[in-house]
């Protein structure tokens, strides 16, 4: 499954938001990726997510594949909303 978000965090996905997202995704078994423009990053790898340098206003897609993909996605959506990182579109 996948969901698309528009980033509203002021400085984009910098260290703090990346730390939150990666920490949220890591405990799940499913594979998770973040797609921005034509590049994709492993959502469980902080280096890979940070090196995308996603700016504020950007539109990204997060996909999760695996047995607990629904739970993973719920957790990610929760982080996006509670931390004001962005909103689903």
């Amino acid at each position: 499954m996948e969901k698309t978000f528009k980033i509203s965090a002021l400085d984009g996905l910098h260290a703090r938001p990346c730390t939150l997202l990666v920490s949220a995704a890591t405990p799940f078994k499913s594979e998770a990726t973040l797609r921005y423009k034509d590049r994709s990053a492993n959502l469980k790898s902080i280096m890979s997510v940070m090196s995308q340098a996603v700016p504020t206003g950007a539109v990204i897609t997060i996909s999760a594949v695996g047995e607990d993909e629904v739970a993973l996605m719920e957790r990610v959506v929760d982080i996006f909303i509670s931390q004001g990182l962005g909103e689903e579109c």
Partner: peptide
């Protein structure tokens, strides 16, 4: 800590 355990790295 996340960098240290980064799966890609």
């Amino acid at each position: 800590l996340l960098i240290l355990e980064d799966p890609e790295m």
